[in-house]
C-alpha cells in the first residue's frame, strides 16, 4: 500500500492540546501550536514548562488528555505509521545502547525501520555520521562518548532517512560553544534544504539566531507565537530617540505627531513610536528647523519579552 501525501501549509498543528498527568498535574493546557511548513520554529520556555510533553504528544509517544495534534497534515497518533518515516526527532536527549558502537547503534535502528533499504544502510549511516562530524568516533562504544558526541549521534540517527520535518528537543544540550555553533549551522543547512525544523530550547540566544518563528511556553500554556518580527513587536512598541541641542523644539514636533516625548538626557528625548513613520518624523524635525544630532529607532529586546512572559527562573544568560 502506498500512502498518499497531501502537502500542507502547516508542518505541525495542534488544537487545544492538553495533557493532565494521572497525578492531576496539568502539563500542557489547551495548546494551539502552528508550525508553518519550511519554517524554523523556536519552541521556547523554561525547563518544566511542557515543551517535551508537547513534543511527546506530537510524536504519539503519549496520549493527549484532550485536543488534537497533526504532523504534516496527518492526525497523530493515528497517522504515525505513515508520517513518522518523514519525521526525524531528538526527544529529551539522545538514548542508545551503551555497549554498542555509534555505527552499530545506528545500524540497529535502521534494521528496525520497515521502510529502510538495507542495500544503502551502510552508506546512509556514513553520510549521517559525516554530517554531524562523528565519523572518527563511529567505531567507539557509545558509553565512551562525551555528552556532545552522544548528542551528535542522536542528530545523526534523525538524519538516517531524508526528512520533511525535524523535531529537535534541546539539541545543543551539553555541547561546547563550537559544537553549538556547528549544530546551528547544521540546522540552517537543513532548513535550506526545505526541511521544517521545530527546535525546542530554554535558551533564547540559541533560538533567536536561526529561527523564523517562535513560540513561548509558560506553565503548559503558549504565551506568544508567530513570526520572529511579529513576536518581537509584541515585546513592546518601537521607540524613537532624538538627540538635539534644541530639546524643546524637538519635543513640540513629536507632540504635533501625537507622540509623548520624555526627556531622557540633557540633550535627548525619547518616545514610543506607535505607528508613526520614522522617516517622516525625521523630515518633520528637519523641516521645523531642529538640529538633529542623532536619530535612533530602538527595537525592543526579545529577551525582555521572554523574561516578562515566561517568568523568573528563565535562564536567559545560558
Amino acid at each position: 500500500m502506498t500512502p498518499t501525501v497531501t502537502p500542507t501549509a502547516e508542518a505541525v498543528r495542534t488544537c487545544s492540546l492538553t495533557k493532565r498527568w494521572p497525578s492531576g498535574q496539568m502539563a500542557v493546557d489547551g495548546l494551539d501550536l502552528v508550525v508553518p511548513s519550511g519554517s524554523v520554529y523556536g519552541f521556547l520556555g523554561p525547563n518544566g514548562s511542557g515543551k517535551t510533553t508537547t513534543i511527546r504528544m506530537l510524536l504519539g509517544l503519549i496520549n493527549p488528555t484532550a485536543g488534537t495534534a497533526s504532523l504534516l497534515g496527518q492526525p497523530m497518533p493515528a497517522g504515525g505509521r505513515r508520517v513518522l518515516p518523514r519525521v526525524g526527532a531528538l526527544v529529551e536527549g539522545p538514548a542508545f545502547h551503551p555497549y554498542l558502537s555509534g555505527t552499530a547503534n545506528l545500524r540497529r535502528l535502521d534494521r528496525w525501520d520497515a521502510t529502510a533499504d538495507p542495500a544503502t544502510c551502510t552508506s546512509r549511516i556514513g553520510v549521517a555520521l559525516e554530517r554531524v562530524g562523528l565519523s572518527a568516533a563511529a567505531g567507539k562504544r557509545y558509553r565512551s562518548y562525551s555528552l556532545g558526541m552522544k548528542q551528535r549521534l542522536g542528530i545523526a540517527a534523525s538524519l538516517l532517512q531524508p526528512r520533511e520535518l525535524l523535531i529537535l528537543d534541546e539539541p545543543t544540550n551539553g555541547l561546547d560553544p563550537q559544537g553549538t555553533r556547528e549544530v546551528r549551522a547544521l540546522i540552517r543547512d537543513l532548513a535550506g534544504d526545505g526541511i521544517t525544523v521545530l527546535l525546542s530550547s530554554h535558551l533564547l540566544s540559541e533560538v533567536e539566531q536561526v529561527c523564523t518563528h517562535v513560540g513561548m511556553m509558560r506553565a503548559g500554556r503558549l504565551v506568544a507565537q508567530g513570526g520572529l518580527e511579529q513576536v518581537r513587536r509584541q515585546a513592546g512598541t518601537l521607540r524613537v530617540r532624538v538627540e538635539t541641542a534644541d530639546v524643546a523644539a524637538a519635543a513640540k514636533v513629536l507632540q504635533d505627531w501625537g507622540l509623548e516625548p520624555q526627556t531622557v538626557a540633557a540633550q535627548a528625548i525619547s518616545a514610543t513610536l506607535d505607528d508613526a513613520d520614522p522617516a517622516g518624523l525625521v523630515a518633520a524635525l528637519v523641516h521645523a528647523g531642529v538640529a538633529v544630532h542623532g536619530f535612533q529607532v530602538q527595537r525592543p529586546e526579545l529577551e525582555e519579552l521572554f523574561v516578562a512572559l515566561t517568568g523568573e527562573g528563565f535562564d536567559v544568560a545560558g
Binding site: R86, W112, E164, G194
Partner: peptide, 25 residues
C-alpha cells in the same frame, strides 16, 4: 492515488523482509 512520493521526493513504504530485519536486530 498517484504517488507515494512526498514533497521532498522520497518514498515511504514497507519493504519485504522488514520483520526479519527487525528480528535480526
Amino acid at each position: 492515488p498517484v504517488d507515494s512520493v512526498s514533497p521532498v521526493g522520497f518514498t515511504v513504504h514497507r519493504r519485504a523482509g522488514a520483520a526479519w530485519r527487525a528480528f535480526t536486530a
